[in-house]
């Protein structure tokens, strides 16, 4: 966890330096804004990881001497298969196309997207279908 935190925080520090250098050299707002946004991209998750790295015992994947025995057991639950990503993808496709081909597609696409959103959420709670 510590290395992961260091990578993200290091990214934030690097871009903080670059942002400051860029701003005081060029006074160009667009690039500075984007660079400053990149600082936040490193800082927010980095600070979260840093917080936990201080408080957690190293996980088995953080310890070079961990054995497979220590890591045995449940890794997590993974859906076997699911139709909802496909339905959601097609719904979003129609929503996007409605911007070019007319609002009537938005109705169809919107309904499918909403239906799929409910489906994918309910599936997470029920434990999967199909």
């Amino acid at each position: 966890m510590k290395i992961e935190a260091n990578i993200l925080v290091g990214l934030a520090v690097f871009f903080a330096v670059v942002s400051l250098g860029y701003w005081f050299w060029s006074y160009e707002p667009a690039g500075t804004a984007m660079l400053a946004g990149t600082v936040l991209f490193g800082l927010l998750p980095g600070a979260y990881y840093f917080w936990w790295a201080k408080r957690m015992k190293p996980r088995t994947e953080d310890r070079p001497d961990a054995t497979l025995k220590e890591g045995a057991g449940v890794v997590g639950s993974f859906p076997g298969s699911s139709i909802w990503p496909f339905v959601l993808g097609m719904g979003l496709f129609l929503v996007v196309l409605s911007l070019v081909f007319g609002t009537w597609l938005l109705v169809v696409g919107g309904v499918i997207t909403l239906y799929a959103t409910i489906g994918v959420t309910a599936e997470s709670r029920r434990g999967g279908t199909v």
Binding site: K69, V75, P79, G80, S81, G127
Partner: peptide, 26 residues
Amino acid sequence: MTLIAERPETIHEHPEHHEGPTGILK
């Protein structure tokens, strides 16, 4: 069907086969 992934410690004698849809539905 949600599958619980386990990280095995030794070789499974009978690896759990994944039953799922086939063909285009797969």
